[in-house]
C-alpha cells in the first residue's frame, strides 16, 4: 500500500482519457495512505473529502430522546460484556475517553474562531493553551459543558482534604434524565461516560488525572452528580513548581 502504487496506476484526471466511473481505480485509492488523495477522484469531484467541510457550521440540533435511546443501548451492551459494576463503569469510561480527546481540539478551535483570533491574514493569536489546573477546569466547566450539554456545569470546587482533588458538580446531567435508578447497581452508569469524556480532555491537555462520578441526590435534585477529579502527583508537582514561588 505504498505511494509508488499510485504513481503506477496513474491517479488523477487524465485529459487524454477523460472522466471515468468509480471503478477499481478508486478502490486502489482507498487502500492508499492519505485520504486527501480522494479529492482527485476520477469520477469528477463528486466526493468531497471531509476536510473540505466547515467545522464552524450552524448548530444542528437533534432530539434528546435519540441520544437517550442510543445511550441506553450502549449501557445495555456494555453491561452484557461486563461482569460487575466496575467493569461496566470502566467500559463506559473508555467510550467517553475517546470522545474527550477529540473534543478538546474541537472546542479550542471553535473558541478561537468565535473570538476572531483566527484570521486569514498574518499571524493568528491563538488562545493560549491552558497550563494551570484551575484554568483547564474552568474551561471544562464552561465551554465543554456548554458545547456538549447546552449549559454550564453547576459548581467547581477544590477538595479540602486532598491537594490533588477537585470536584465538578452537575445538578441535572442531561443523559441521566430518563434512566431510572436501577436497584442492582448504583446510579453511576451514565455519569461514568461523562467522567470518561472529562478524563480524555484532561489527559490530552497534559493534565493526567483520574475522573470518577458519584451521585449525591438531594431533595429537589435527585440526579445531582459530582465528578471527582484526582490529578496525578506529577501534575500537582509541576503546578507548584511553576506557579508557586
Amino acid at each position: 500500500m505504498s505511494s509508488s502504487r499510485l504513481l503506477v496506476s496513474g491517479v488523477g484526471y487524465d485529459p487524454a482519457v477523460g472522466p471515468q466511473s468509480t471503478g477499481p481505480q478508486v478502490q486502489q485509492l482507498a487502500t492508499s495512505t492519505s485520504s486527501l488523495k480522494r479529492q482527485f477522484s476520477a469520477s469528477g469531484g463528486a466526493h468531497s473529502s471531509i476536510f473540505d467541510k466547515n467545522l464552524h457550521r450552524a448548530k444542528h440540533d437533534i432530539s434528546l430522546s435519540s441520544l437517550c435511546y442510543l445511550f441506553g443501548e450502549i449501557v445495555s451492551w456494555c453491561d452484557s460484556k461486563s461482569r460487575g459494576v466496575q467493569q461496566l463503569e470502566s467500559r463506559l469510561n473508555n467510550l467517553g475517553y475517546s470522545i474527550g480527546i477529540k473534543y478538546l481540539e474541537l472546542t479550542s478551535l471553535r473558541e478561537n474562531f468565535a473570538s476572531g483570533n483566527i484570521s486569514s491574514s498574518s499571524k493568528s493569536h491563538a488562545t493560549k493553551r491552558e497550563v494551570r489546573i484551575l484554568e483547564i477546569l474552568q474551561f471544562i466547566n464552561s465551554s465543554v459543558w456548554k458545547g456538549l450539554f447546552g449549559k454550564m456545569a453547576d459548581k467547581l470546587e477544590k477538595s479540602q482534604d486532598l491537594a490533588n482533588q477537585y470536584m465538578i458538580t452537575d445538578n441535572l446531567p442531561l443523559i441521566s434524565k430518563y434512566i431510572s435508578v436501577p436497584k442492582e447497581f448504583q446510579h453511576l452508569n451514565c455519569a461514568a461516560f461523562v467522567a470518561g469524556i472529562v478524563e480524555g480532555i484532561l489527559d490530552s491537555a497534559y493534565f493526567q488525572a483520574n475522573v470518577s462520578a458519584h451521585s449525591f441526590p438531594e431533595p429537589g435534585l435527585p440526579l445531582k452528580t459530582v465528578f471527582v477529579i484526582n490529578f496525578d502527583d506529577k501534575v500537582i508537582k509541576r503546578e507548584s513548581m511553576r506557579f508557586e514561588r
Binding site: S65, C68, Y69, F71, G72, E73, V75, S76, Y178, I179, S180, P182
Partner: peptide, 10 residues
Amino acid sequence: VNHVVKNALS
C-alpha cells in the same frame, strides 16, 4: 414513555 420506554433497564 418516560419511565418504561426511556428507561434502558425496563
